[in-house]
Nucleic acid binder design. Structure first.
Lengths: 181, 181
DNA sequence: GAGCTGCGAGAACGATCGTTCTCAACCGTA
DNA sequence: TACGGTTGAGAACGATCGTTCTCGCAGCTC
């Protein structure tokens, strides 16, 4: 096992455990056990827990955004594609809301690096929605963002695709109203 | 200081600290110091930390819902009143998102009592919105809920009334579309 | 094969957590 | 004034945290 594979295994374990149980509830020894990477190597790759947390969020951000962009790319109705993609995400068996908001809510103004990743993640989603609706419709993009974030928050407590379906309907109403106005 | 005042002081300290820094990041000794209530008395009133956490959420739920109901009660445009109230909430200097979703994200499937309060809180908000739009418009109430939750999530990272203003605009579009249909 | 280097397994460390215990001071009643 | 019961202040306890250290084993050059 070279360092690259160790890093992947560590991030896999960190993502599963941090997302499912929260950051503070998971100790470094749980990550060592789940990943199979010795503690010494863990601390050589990630010099402190905060580095592991930010790396976990960073990798999740890349995966999440890339997957959403891919789902939207080849779609005839990109806005509908966003909410359909959200609905599939909400239906995953271990869905537990937005990992970034969960981490921010838990760690708050603690480590600055965490806040940076969370802000960047949300800015990416907002930019993606802005690209969808085109320029000069910033208000509409903001409203779609509200629907996406709201659906994610509601689904955190009541998993399943229903919040995404409702959000998709609302999005189309807003789109049509915006086209007219 | 009788037990009732001690209880109030404990909940005040718990609310300030738990909401600002997260539940796990605040130790019982911080609560003792902030409240001025001796540790022994603390544990007589709340036999464990979990009881303090659920009591904190319970009291916050009552205050939050009562304040929103009051703001809506005498308003000519109750839906607008909801989002105006949210905008004022988002502008409070120590606003840090929804305390209930923060606690759920942090504690997850841990103590069942916490999850109960969080679910109850969200059900109350949904019921309030259902009352506003009247019966036979459940989909509209769900969409307003999405906007309210989305605005709260967005405001958690970018405080200020802007997300509530956007949500209010979107809510009116949805209301008008629903009236026509 | 001898000696050096780097690694994994896990003990160890200091800090902090939630919770309980000690003990001296204080209360109202005789 | 003597006294049982309750309190507050804070030490103490066992567990667990993030992090570092020890030590014995493996693999390399001469």
């Amino acid at each position: 096992m070279d360092d690259e594979e160790a890093r992947t295994r560590l991030l896999d374990a960190a993502e599963a455990l941090f997302y499912a149980e929260g950051v503070q509830a998971v100790g470094m020894d749980r990550i060592r056990a789940e990943s199979g990477v010795p503690l010494k190597r863990l601390y050589r790759i990630f010099p402190a827990k905060e580095a592991l947390v930010t790396a976990y969020l960073e990798r999740r951000d890349q995966r999440w955004t890339a997957s959403l962009r891919e789902a939207v790319a080849g779609s005839a109705d990109p806005v509908a594609a966003v909410f359909d993609w959200l609905g599939r995400w909400f239906s995953e068996p271990d869905f537990r809301g937005c990992a970034f908001l969960n981490a921010y809510g838990e760690l708050g103004a603690g480590p600055a690096g965490v806040l940076d990743v969370v802000r960047r993640h949300k800015a990416e989603l907002r930019a993606l929605l802005g690209d969808l609706v085109g320029p000069d419709r910033e208000d509409l993009a903001d409203q779609l963002l509200l629907l996406a974030e709201g659906a994610t928050a509601v689904a955190a407590l009541t998993p399943g695709p229903a919040p995404a379906v409702r959000a998709r309907e609302a999005a189309h109403v807003l789109l049509n109203a915006s086209r007219v106005g």
